[in-house]
Design a protein around this nucleic acid. Sequence first.
DNA 1: TTAGGGTTAG
Length: 335
Amino acid sequence: MQPACGIFDHISAQPPLDPYPLEFQDAYFGIQLHTNFRSCGHGQCRRLLKLKGTPDLLLLIAIDDTESSNPSKSKSKDPQHPFDVTNLEEASNMFKKMLKQRPRPSIVRFTQLLGQVAKLEHYSVAISWYKQITLLGMGLVPDACTLNIIVNCFCRLNQMGGSFSVLALFFKLGLQPDVTTLNILIRGLGQDNRVDEATSLVRKMEAFGEGCKPNVITFGTLIASCKQGQNDRAIQMLRMMEKNDCKPNVVVYSTIIDSLCKDKLVAKAFNLFSEMKSKGIPPNIVTYTSLFQGLCRLGQWKEASRFFEEMNNNGISPNVQTFSALVDCLCKGAS
DNA sequence: TTAGGGTTAG
């Protein structure tokens, strides 16, 4: 319960988890109440609320752990081939089938399906199905994979209160969030224009325990959350990651280069381009396209043409984005 | 042992 408390001093969540600091004891019920209870009025939800503060949930977890710790039992249950659902209807049919199946499929199997639904961008559906399978009546207890998917679904829906409720649930269930969990939250905060909080979270990540050290994706996400006009901040973050012994890669550099080009700071972008090459980080088609577009937008056709040639000489072939950028500039009459 | 996170156009 302890590692995250300090972090919440700097992250504001929304009801029903106020006030801080969180004790986490209401987390499980909080998320149900937050997303389900108000609208559904089902008996199951009422029962859930009545159980608040009792050890029933823990008992249930203990029962589930006993079952899943028996390898012979769990192995025979589920063939582990991935689902091949291409649309929501197929996924929905599969979900209904799984609900009727006896013995009931494991949480792993349900998690696979939730992951597919989330990939299809049906985030609300994934959350709704998650709630169904974790209601006490079904007795399935989510694992860290399940929760990561749901944290991401809330983030994608721009419902950060829901995301942080699920983070609290990690602790409630004795699960360890990992760097990916936190990266998802950082992305969500950034999209919600809460870059200060995202930065604060990055600085405190290691307090979450082992496996939560910020990585190149953490910084890449944070840098990508800097909107136009925040290039200095993005570059500061680049330096911050280097100080943290985290080597920037082509994605990190390309993100900043693109942002500089969009702000017409093409010379600065080329400085970073030189910097990355001097560090042995080879630019890719994204890097080249951003710079090429930057030159085209300024109407620097000679330079653009020379740069296009350089790109080809370096074995990078233009793609549809490269040509679209060119066509767009020509149509808009940059000169 | 299943899944989840960062970059380019219009």
